[in-house]
Amino acid sequence: MLKRSTVAAVATAALVAVGLAVPSPAAAAPTRAQLALRWAPIHHQDVDATGSHALGGRADYITRVDFDGDLNGRNNWDRAGQPGTSMAAAVYYSVAETSSHWYITYFFFHPRDWVDHPFFETEHENDGEGIMFAIERDGSEYGVLRGAVSVAHTNFYSYTPSGSTWTTGRETVDGTLNFATSPHDSFSHPVTAQEARGHGLKAHPQYAINGDGIIYYPSTVSETPSDGNDRDVRYQLIDIFAPGGLWAERDNTSLFAHLGTFAGDTSGGCGSGTFGCGTNSANAPWGWDDGDDLPGRGEITTNPAKLSVEYFTIPGGVSRSYTYNPYSSAAAALSAAAKTAPRVVD
Score class of each variant (00 low, 15 high):
residue 75 N to C: 06
residue 76 N to L: 11
residue 79 R to S: 14
residue 79 R to E: 15
residue 79 R to Y: 09
residue 81 G to M: 01
residue 81 G to H: 01
residue 82 Q to M: 09
residue 82 Q to K: 10
residue 82 Q to G: 00
residue 83 P to I: 05
residue 84 G to W: 15
residue 84 G to M: 14
residue 86 S to W: 09
residue 86 S to V: 11
residue 88 A to T: 11
residue 89 A to N: 08
residue 90 A to S: 15
residue 90 A to R: 09
residue 91 V to W: 06
residue 95 V to N: 01
residue 96 A to G: 05
residue 96 A to C: 09
residue 99 S to I: 09
residue 100 S to K: 08
residue 103 Y to F: 15
residue 104 I to A: 11
residue 106 Y to H: 11
residue 106 Y to W: 11
residue 107 F to P: 03
residue 108 F to E: 13
residue 110 H to L: 05
residue 110 H to P: 02
residue 111 P to L: 10
residue 112 R to D: 03
residue 114 W to T: 07
residue 116 D to Q: 01
residue 117 H to D: 00
residue 118 P to E: 00
residue 118 P to R: 07
residue 119 F to S: 11
residue 119 F to N: 12
residue 123 E to T: 05
residue 124 H to E: 07
residue 125 E to D: 08
residue 128 G to S: 05
residue 130 G to K: 02
residue 130 G to P: 00
residue 131 I to G: 01
residue 131 I to V: 14
residue 133 F to T: 03
residue 134 A to H: 02
residue 135 I to P: 03
residue 136 E to G: 08
residue 137 R to A: 04
residue 138 D to Q: 04
residue 139 G to C: 10
residue 140 S to P: 03
residue 140 S to H: 04
residue 141 E to L: 15
residue 144 V to F: 00
residue 144 V to C: 02
residue 145 L to K: 01
residue 145 L to W: 02
residue 146 R to M: 15
residue 147 G to Y: 06
residue 147 G to A: 15
residue 148 A to C: 08
residue 150 S to M: 12
residue 151 V to L: 13
residue 151 V to F: 05
residue 152 A to Q: 05
residue 152 A to E: 05
residue 153 H to W: 12
residue 157 Y to R: 14
residue 158 S to W: 03
residue 159 Y to A: 07
residue 160 T to R: 02
residue 160 T to V: 07
residue 162 S to F: 03
residue 163 G to M: 05
residue 165 T to P: 06
residue 167 T to I: 12
residue 168 T to F: 12
residue 170 R to S: 12
residue 170 R to G: 02
residue 172 T to M: 10
residue 173 V to P: 01
residue 173 V to H: 01
residue 175 G to R: 13
residue 177 L to Q: 01
residue 179 F to L: 14
residue 179 F to Q: 13
residue 181 T to K: 06
residue 182 S to C: 08
residue 184 H to R: 06
residue 184 H to K: 06
residue 184 H to G: 07
residue 184 H to P: 04
residue 189 H to I: 05
residue 191 V to W: 07
residue 191 V to N: 10
